[in-house]
């Protein structure tokens, strides 16, 4: 039976007791783990921004800073056989699914040690091992692909669910509607995650999207929910419920994560289309890491333990940056490899 779209109480300050009904109370271990994972993404992205500024990363580089709670919360309730696909703001997803920061950073610098051996770049990395299917540069194209990943999960009967991430801008693409239709029709195990960071490049959501994005599945009978994407526990709770629903054989589910990116659309975007007050409203008042830190303080997690995580993450990120600069450029012969899979005759 289709569940009606609903809106979690995202306008209120995130308060775990009201966000979700049967949500487990977060414990210190989970808080620490989330803090560590989100901090890794934050620091990694800051470092990537710095390397970009130094000319070591070229082309397009879309940073995930501000949105860390979304992928961290969802990843925490996934199962190993699940698959992930996203668009081009993708470094956070790679780190969250356990890809090596060194390999990701070295791909950003276009070096031999990168996940695609320097041939993909920021927007094009993949890991079969981690079931991470990219990394796609065309807005919305990852959504039918994610639907196809789900089709294969169902076909093979492996009980996997595909996580198909998209931005608020991509949610308007025709192929997203096409995907919703097929996924609902065939009850495909796919979780559509709309990361609504409120801007499709420079156009705000209220200027590019009619109606609420989480309700876009209603016509197809796909339940949708709007979630505070800055609070990792709200995200985790919503994702757990959605995944239970999907794994129960009920078909797709839409989660609209209300989030915010602090940086421009890409590194070359000065983000003139929004006010400083707006940015600092999120940064200072609703930052996913600050929200979590406050909870950790209330929980009584020792400052020293947190500092130790900070140092550990700093080291990991510095190592990845060093590796990304030391790793040599690809062998010129790489120009010609991997165009086609070779078939021995």
């Amino acid at each position: 039976m289709p569940v009606a779209a609903k809106k979690s109480d995202s306008k209120k300050k995130p308060d775990l007791k009201t966000v979700s009904n049967s949500a487990p109370v977060p414990d210190a271990e989970e808080m620490t783990r989330f803090y560590r994972e989100m901090l890794l993404i934050r620091r990694f992205e800051e470092k990537a921004g710095q390397l970009y500024g130094m000319g070591l990363i070229g082309g397009f580089c879309h940073l995930y800073i501000g949105q860390e709670a979304v992928v961290t919360g969802i990843q925490s309730v996934q199962e190993p056989q699940d698959s992930i696909v996203t668009a081009y703001r993708d470094h956070g997803h790679m780190l969250a699914c356990g890809m090596d920061p060194k390999g990701v950073m070295a791909e950003l610098t276009g070096r031999r040690g990168g996940y695609s051996r320097g041939k993909g770049g920021s927007m094009h990395m993949f890991s079969r091992e981690k079931n991470f299917y990219g990394g796609h540069g065309i807005v919305g194209a990852q959504v039918p692909i994610g639907t196809g990943l789900a089709f294969a999960h169902k076909y093979k009967g492996d009980n996997g669910v595909a996580m198909a991430y998209m931005g608020d801008g991509a949610a308007n693409q025709g192929q997203v509607a096409e995907s919703y239709n097929m996924a609902a029709l065939w009850k495909l195990p796919v979780l559509y995650v709309i990361e609504n960071n409120r801007y499709g490049m420079g156009t705000s959501a209220d200027r590019h999207a009619a109606g609420a994005l989480y309700r876009r599945g209603e016509g197809y009978g796909i339940p949708g929910e709007q979630v505070d994407g800055m609070d990792v526990f709200s995200v985790r709770n919503a994702a757990r419920q959605a995944l239970d629903y999907i794994r129960g054989g009920n078909g797709p589910y839409i989660l609209e994560m209300m989030t915010y990116r602090y940086r421009g659309h890409s590194m070359s975007d000065p983000a003139k289309y929004r006010s400083k007050d707006e940015v600092s409203k999120y940064k200072d008042g609703h930052d996913p890491l600050l929200i979590l830190r406050r909870m950790m303080d209330e929980q009584g997690i020792a400052e020293d333990d947190i500092k130790a995580i900070d140092r550990e993450i700093k080291d990991i990120v510095n190592e990845s940056a060093a590796f990304a600069q030391e790793s040599p450029e690809p062998d010129p012969a790489e120009l010609w490899t991997d165009v086609l899979v070779k078939v021995e005759e």
Binding site: G148, L149, A150, A152, Q175, E178, M182
Partner: peptide, 23 residues
């Protein structure tokens, strides 16, 4: 053997995803 809606972009992309995932 699967009948699709008349949405070429969508089912072509779905096919690509299925191929990525082992079919």
């Amino acid at each position: 053997v699967i009948d699709t809606p008349i949405t070429e972009h969508g089912f072509a992309g779905l096919g690509v995803g299925a191929a990525f995932n082992g079919l």
